[in-house]
Design a protein around this nucleic acid. Structure first.
Lengths: 253, 253
DNA sequence: TCCGATCATGCCCGATTAGGCCCGAACCTG
DNA sequence: CAGGTTCGGGCCTAATCGGGCATGATCGGA
């Protein structure tokens, strides 16, 4: 039996039963658990199942986001501190735009209950989180929703950002540096970020220090567009000073 | 049972019952309270429940206007059957619009994994549920988000619906009758529903029989706008016949 | 036909994770 | 403010994971 056949069959079993586990699959197909794990990894990468400890579950069966929970574990501590520091930059009233991203989501989750703000976002998880916040007037940016980031992109999103003007934007980036500016892997996403940057009077970049020096496919702005960078202490003081020379204030939480 | 499965089930219990508590969950799932606490923490982090001493409550109940938890659980059975019947009306391909509402949400949650469709919705809970469905191209309608229904309304939403044309719309209503048409308590919501009706070639009304004869503040259409009504057996055969005379097909699930 | 490249699979082992247990601290309720 | 309940951090064990390496089969070009 070829690997793709086996994987196809595993997928069918997963969908039929709602779950599969490594050990019984290994028995079933007379291969070792390693092979099954590789198959599950492949199916997971293809977005067809979600890997869990001991087995896998077909996608769509779970409506919460292990993605988010999972990525949170990486650098969770830094992100928490960054999110907390970002809260200090909240205007006491007015309008803010929240970009998609786990750290921004953490910040949104930590918004004090007594906050009274207008929030604009194109991120589905963030919107879901803030939808029942009593003090927040939430405006959702529509568009095609990217599976990966659960954020709206494309024409509707761009147009909507073109029609508003907010006091502050909290934006995330996959890479930032003085030379290569702000970058992210997806073009459509970059376009939305650029539109959001243009829609805000003040731009706050939320990025842990591992993003510094990274560059990705799509560029959506320069570091000089950023008024304030909030990152963690992993950014060296020299780098911080260099960035501040460019006119961007730096907070190392 | 895998941790994510358990968490998913906990989430369902929380949504159904409006609350869960650590001790009974521990019994129910035959694990210790510590494990349940970990699960609740994870769900809380993901923003799906809010942790309280002794248990958790689901975040943002996606309830419909006037009726709260009791009504929801009371009619749950009918709603399940209606949602299931609605699935039979799915086009095998093409574009559908999903209105906000608990029954529509149930239907969305029950979409088969192998479905391959374009879905447009202004409902935040429905969008969140479908965002990671591999076969679905999701388009989110933006706008001001109403706390109560967690649905987008106002100018952006109206304009977006004005720019599209879908094969079928699944729409909910708080009240429907031949005389008073389709009604809902909120004007802004009604405007969006009207725009959605105008954007669809075929209109399917999803409403349990308790909605029949009810009239609410804002009217968004006539029963004659509806091609198909899916309701439960609580609607009397005479009423069904009367409605069918108006040109609306009726399914009593 | 031969030979190196590629790939699937198996094997090994240190790293990671889930879940249970324990206990001091925090929290409710009367 | 007292007593029971709940919390959450630390620790432990067993299961699982995943990276590195070896092996054998298939493939493709000379």
């Amino acid at each position: 039996m070829y690997a793709p056949e086996r994987q196809q069959e595993i997928l069918r079993l997963a969908r039929d039963g709602g779950r599969v586990d490594v050990v019984s699959l290994a028995e079933e197909f007379q291969v070792t658990a390693e092979t099954i794990r590789r198959d599950l990894t492949a199916l997971d990468r293809a977005g067809l199942v979600r890997r869990v400890h001991g087995g896998a579950i077909p996608v769509g069966r779970l409506d919460f986001e292990p993605d988010l929970a999972e990525r949170e574990t990486a650098a969770a501590d830094e992100k928490d501190r960054i999110a907390k520091a970002a809260l200090a930059e909240l205007p006491s009233e007015g309008t803010m735009i929240l970009d998609a991203g786990t750290t921004v989501a953490k910040m949104a989750a930590a918004l004090p209950l007594e906050a009274s703000l207008t929030v604009v976002t194109h991120s589905l998880p963030i919107a879901a989180r803030l939808a029942d916040h009593p003090g927040i007037q939430l405006h959702l940016i529509g568009g095609r929703v990217r599976h990966r980031t659960r954020a709206a992109v494309d024409a509707w999103a761009l147009r909507a950002y073109g029609e508003i003007r907010a006091d502050v934007l909290f934006v995330a980036a996959n890479g930032f540096s003085a030379e290569h500016g702000l970058t992210t892997p997806d073009l459509a996403e970059a376009a939305v970020k650029r539109a959001a940057v243009a829609a805000a009077r003040r731009v706050v970049l939320i990025a842990d220090s591992s993003k510094h020096g990274q560059e990705h496919f799509a560029r959506f702005g320069d570091l000089s567009d950023v008024d304030l960078l909030i990152t963690d202490s992993g950014l060296s003081p020299e780098d911080a000073v260099a960035i501040e020379r460019g006119g961007t204030e730096v907070v190392r939480a």
